[in-house]
Design a protein around this nucleic acid. Sequence first.
RNA 1: GGAGAGGUGGCAGAGCGGUUGAAUGCGUCAGACUUGAAAUCUGAUUAGGGUUUCGGCCCUACGGGAGUUCGAAUCUCCCCCUCUCCGCCA
Length: 468
Amino acid sequence: MIDLKLLRENPAHFKEGARLKGVAVDIEHLLALDARRRALQTSRQALAAEQGQLEKVVGPQLGKLSGELKKAADEGARREIEGQIASLRGQPAALKAQVQALDEQERAIEPELTALLLTVPQPPDADVPRGEGPSDNIEAKRWAPAGWDWGKSFSENKGFPAQNHIDLCARLGLADFPRGVKMSGTRSYVLAGDGMLLHQAILRYALDFMVHRNGFKPMSVPVLVREECMVGTGFFPAGREQAYQIEESKRGGGSGSTGGSGHDLFLTGTGEVGLMGLHEGEILDESVLPLKYVTVSTCFRREAGAAGKDTAGLYRVHVFDKVEQVIIARADEAESRVWHREMIGYVEALLQSLGLPYRLLQCCTADLGVKNADMIDIECWMPGRGEFGETHSASRLYDYQCRRLNMRYRPGGEGGKGPTAICHSLNNTVAASPRLMIPILEMYQQADGTVKVPEVLRAYMGGKVQIG
RNA sequence: GGAGAGGUGGCAGAGCGGUUGAAUGCGUCAGACUUGAAAUCUGAUUAGGGUUUCGGCCCUACGGGAGUUCGAAUCUCCCCCUCUCCGCCA
């Protein structure tokens, strides 16, 4: 969520940002709603103050009068006092009605304003290249292990033609697609034998890599979360159709403590949701920043709108596992930029240790998504596809996500004074599998159809050197 | 699944119809004392928002929502959450 105050001060900046991202949002209307709400607020508050004053005066008088009423003997005095009470009661009541009327008007605006505000995208940073779509993304760097020549094809490099991972999986019994589909429908799979072991080896290696070499704190977080968590992390409302929804609200039942919940739950599409949700609504001590978290979690994606795309194999699936890194930092642009580079660096080191050719892709404005000020994708070379495939995505969000989550800290350290500040957040994939199995299987295949196990993974596969 | 208890400031914990944004303790910060520290004493210490002549002024919030009342942290209803006991169970 963007800062409404900044929007008021500089609407043009946000209009231009939305335009660059190709997001349609009526900012003029938002500003009008905001202005109207503030006008209502101002007059409401003035009336409420007056009402409060009056109540303080009238209250005790009422108490006194009702005491006198009890004691009053004759009918005449009684009626006199009752009249006074009635008129006293009428005074604040009239104001209260006015306040309520204004309240109602304000409440009528609120949902629309909030909904609109949530859809205003974070403007791209000035140094993000402008573009219309993925084709305008810019390759920023390319790396390959010794012996790999980008100028040559796979078979020229290796001396034999590449099989794609689907064939390799079938031949080596690493994955069973028909049975996956039988149980769970399209985009489902079963990993078997060494395929399952390789999958687990990747995840565990990546987790250890972040924990032991880069000082991240390993966490296990929920993958089944409430709507607020999805909205807070910025995946809703824009990506609502991508998430699986568990309709607990429709089950009813549930009395008291253990019973069913009245709220729907959602399966998360990335560990980022659970990690960022951890400190929702908290005011953190500045000394704990930056928080560096890593999780390995199962990710669920409906892949709505991707019908017919990448239907075969392990590339685009509904359920996968991912090691994800997240950093929650001080509100400082320069610091955010440094962490962004760091987080990309960790992944580069990981991929280099795996010997996988990759490139960094500077995403253009149109490809950033609503949350990001900047995003760098990392793509691994996938010989079976004959092209790069996205395996990582490193996002820099400034305070966009933390504002939604109401995640703050108090600058100035030492118990702190002064106003709170909203944290900055960043995230990046560490390893998503089975997708990362694709470049591994395809790059490590040998002429005889077997697959070498990357050296760094062998310890995680019981010392196995070769599959098949 | 059954039965009960409870959700108050950074934490613990009072308040149970008005002057309580909230006692008290702990923590934290500032000052005093001290060579320094500890101990002690004094003071400060919720957040969000509106408005501002930038000195302030004001509104909102005691899990969330609705209600009763002239007035609600306090009473009623619904929801969410936590805990205890029994049952079941990876």
